[in-house]
């Protein structure tokens, strides 16, 4: 559905995107992960025909974004980083305008708008002026704008920024429901967001694709280990030596001791294969010590990046 081949974009002498290639199949949700200024927005802008690429080609639904840009535009819904809202308009008027310029059939326009407002949960504010809405509602109106013409492809630039936790869950749910009938690219710098909504992830850093995989593989493979935080009560030295005997545990580090309830905090790192947490729990309890907490630690985006980028450099050095 979406094909990006060797796309490069310069701004003056600054390279924003460097030979980026990837594909998205129909009905798939692709996460586009990267730190700020990695080139996510530029890549999305090239796909949405807002910016041309300096070199390379990209196509959406078989149409080249440069040559057949009008055909591409009819088939995409785009939510930029800042939702493109006319502040002085009412929500309903705004969506009506968007539906008109997106070429929604006049006969079904009213229905399409009502349906989109329903889907994005903004029916209640349809007659409010946009500038008076809260950030969360503005973001949803932005999403409605991208959905109103029922496009084949949705390109969402950080769709959950500025929403409260409940709204974030709703928006993710909404995006997940779009899979199958729509192809979605969504950019984010929040790793859990990707694992919750996307089927595949492209990690981009300094304009280049540094990894491409499913979220599960990314967190496991890239991590190369599993990590836990353990909070337990008992003799500190005894606990440490005991934990080190558990099969699969590589390293145990004592972090702190709380004097109030006499508990110890440990950081445990284990092999990637097999779960080591049941064994840890069992051994602590069998000794009659108190188990307060055993929490798996996910990889943060920083960790993934550290690993992805260092691996890249090692590969380059060989």
């Amino acid at each position: 559905m979406i094909e990006v081949k060797q796309v490069t974009r310069y701004f003056g002498r600054v390279m924003a995107v460097d030979k980026v290639s990837f594909q998205v199949e129909k009905g798939e949700i692709l996460g586009f992960l990267g730190p700020n200024a990695a080139g996510k927005t530029t890549t999305m802008r090239i796909l949405t025909t807002y910016l041309p690429a300096t070199s390379g080609t990209a196509s959406v639904a078989g149409f080249d974004v440069h040559r057949d840009s009008m055909q591409v535009r009819k088939r995409i819904g785009y939510l930029p980083e800042n939702p493109p809202l006319y502040a002085e308009m009412r929500v309903l008027d705004y969506l009506d305008f968007v539906a008109r310029i997106k070429g929604v059939d006049p006969r079904s326009r009213k229905h399409a708008i009502a349906e989109t407002m329903d889907k994005t949960g903004i029916s209640a504010v349809s007659s409010r002026v946009i500038k008076q809405l809260s950030k969360g509602f503005k973001q949803r109106v932005g999403l409605a704008q991208a959905l109103v013409h029922n496009p084949d492809v949705l390109i969402l630039d950080e769709p959950t920024v500025g929403l409260d936790p409940k709204q974030i869950i709703e928006v993710r749910e909404l995006i997940r429901n779009l899979a199958g009938s729509h192809t979605v690219i969504l950019s984010t710098h929040i790793l859990p967001e990707v694992s919750m909504t996307c089927q595949r992830v492209v990690i981009i850093d300094r304009g280049r694709v540094v990894a491409e995989d499913t979220p599960e593989n990314l967190t496991h493979k890239l991590a190369g280990s599993q990590r836990f935080t353990l909070v337990a009560g008992g003799p500190a030295e005894g606990l440490q030596t005991l934990l080190e005997t558990v099969k699969g545990v590589r390293q145990v580090r004592r972090l702190e001791t709380s004097s109030a309830d006499d508990t110890h905090h440990f950081h445990i790192e284990g092999d990637a294969e097999g779960s080591i947490n049941p064994a840890i729990a069992r051994i602590v309890v069998e000794k009659g010590w108190d188990l307060y907490e055993l929490r798996p630690e996910g990889l943060s985006l920083e960790d993934v990046f550290m690993r992805v980028t260092t691996r890249e450099e090692e590969g380059g050095g060989q």
Partner: peptide, 14 residues
Amino acid sequence: KSGTIELLLTSPVT
């Protein structure tokens, strides 16, 4: 300024 230009230039409008 408001970013609505992105809507305008990514819609099928010449």
